[in-house]
Lab assay of single mutants.
Amino acid sequence: LRLEVKLGQGCFGEVWMGTWNGTTRVAIKTLKPGTMSPEAFLQEAQVMKKLRHEKLVQLYAVVSEEPIYIVTEYMSKGSLLDFLKGETGKYLRLPQLVDMAAQIASGMAYVERMNYVHRDLRAANILVGENLVCKVADFGLARLIEDNEYTARQGAKFPIKWTAPEAALYGRFTIKSDVWSFGILLTELTTKGRVPYPGMVNREVLDQVERGYRMPCPPECPESLHDLMCQCWRKEPEERPTFEYLQAFL
C-alpha cells in the first residue's frame, strides 16, 4: 500500500490517493489515533465489506491497528460538496442534479434492503467520479466515533443540521433518520452546496425544527421536489418515504 497524494483533511483524519497491490488506484482514509476503537472498527469493517453495490464506494481493505487505515475505490472528482461548490458546479442544471440524487437514493435503497443504517448521509460523504457518477461513502463509521465533541451530539463536530430530530435528541438512528438526511442533501444539491438552514446555528436549528420549522423551497427548485424534501422531514419517522420510493420518484 503506497500513500501518494494527500487529498484532504477532516476533523478525524486525512484522505490520500495511493496504490494498492502495486496496480490498483485507491483512496486511503487514515484516522487520528483515539477516534475509534480498533476492535469496534474491525467489526464494522466486516459488515462494510459485505455491502456491495454500484452506488456505494467499495471497501477494499482495512488496517485495524492505530493509525487505522481504510482502503476504498478511488473517485476522481472528490466529495459531492466540493464538486457542487467548484468550477463544474456552476454548469450543473436541475436534470443532472436530480440524476445525482437518484443515484444516491439507489445506493441508499440497497442499504435499506440490507437493514443497515448510514448515520451520516450528506454531500460531504458522497463521492463523485467521471460522468457525474455518484456513490455513497463512509457508511456506518459515524457510530464508532468516540470523540466527546461528537458523541455528545451537541458538540461542534456533530452534523446536527443533517440529523433527524429523534436521532439528534435521543440517539434513535434508523434508515428513517437517513431519509431525513437525504432530504437535507437534496437542498445541498439544489443550492450547489450551500450550508443548510443558512444564518442559523446548530442550537437554533434543533429548537426550530422541533417546533415544526422546515426549510423553504430553494430558488429555481420545482415545488414537486420541495414537496419530496418535506416528506423526508415528516416528524414521525414511519411517515417518511422509503429510499425505494425516493429512487422511483426521482
Rank of each mutant, 00 (worst) to 15 (best):
P165V: 10
R2S: 08
Q231M: 11
L144M: 12
F158S: 01
T88M: 13
Q208S: 10
I175N: 13
P198F: 08
E65S: 09
D138F: 00
V136M: 05
K32P: 01
L7R: 11
V209Y: 06
A164P: 15
W180F: 11
R52M: 12
R203Q: 11
E236H: 13
L144I: 08
V209I: 14
W20R: 14
T24C: 08
S181G: 05
Q154K: 06
T191C: 07
V111A: 03
N125Y: 01
A102F: 10
L51F: 07
T187C: 08
L225G: 06
E210T: 09
K135T: 14
S106P: 05
K32E: 01
E210Y: 12
A164R: 02
W233G: 07
D178R: 03
M215S: 06
T187I: 10
S76L: 15
C232S: 11
Q231C: 12
E204T: 14
A156M: 06
G155A: 04
Q9M: 09
T24Q: 10
D138C: 03
M48F: 02
F12N: 03
E244C: 10
R52G: 14
A156F: 08
R214L: 11
R2W: 14
L56A: 14
I104K: 00
T163K: 01
V128R: 03
K77R: 13
K192V: 07
F249S: 06
R25I: 12
V136L: 11
I126V: 07
M114Y: 05
E238H: 12
G8D: 06
F139Y: 02
Y170P: 03
P218V: 10
Y69H: 10
M75I: 06
R172E: 04
G78F: 05
L186Q: 04
P218I: 11
C134F: 06
C221K: 02
I175Y: 15
T88P: 12
R143E: 02
K49D: 07
G171W: 09
Q154S: 08
A168G: 15
V26M: 09
K85T: 12
L250E: 03
R122N: 02
G10D: 02
L144D: 09
V47Q: 01
P95S: 08
W20S: 10
N125D: 00
L80A: 14
P38R: 12
E210H: 14
I104V: 09
G129S: 13
S79K: 03
T187M: 11
N125F: 00
E223G: 11
L250S: 06
T151Q: 13
N21Q: 10
S64N: 05
C11T: 03
R240V: 01
E244T: 14
T24P: 10
A137S: 06
P196V: 11
T163D: 00
L56R: 01
S106E: 10
M114L: 04
G78T: 05
A168C: 07
E87I: 14
T242H: 15
D178G: 01
E166L: 02
M215E: 09
R119Q: 01
Q46V: 05
V136Q: 02
F243V: 15
G86L: 09
L250T: 07
P95Y: 08
E220S: 09
V195T: 14
K55R: 12
C217R: 13
E239W: 15
K157P: 15
P196R: 01
K29M: 00
T242V: 14
F173K: 02
E87K: 13
F173D: 03
T151M: 12
N115P: 10
K77Y: 12
G107L: 00
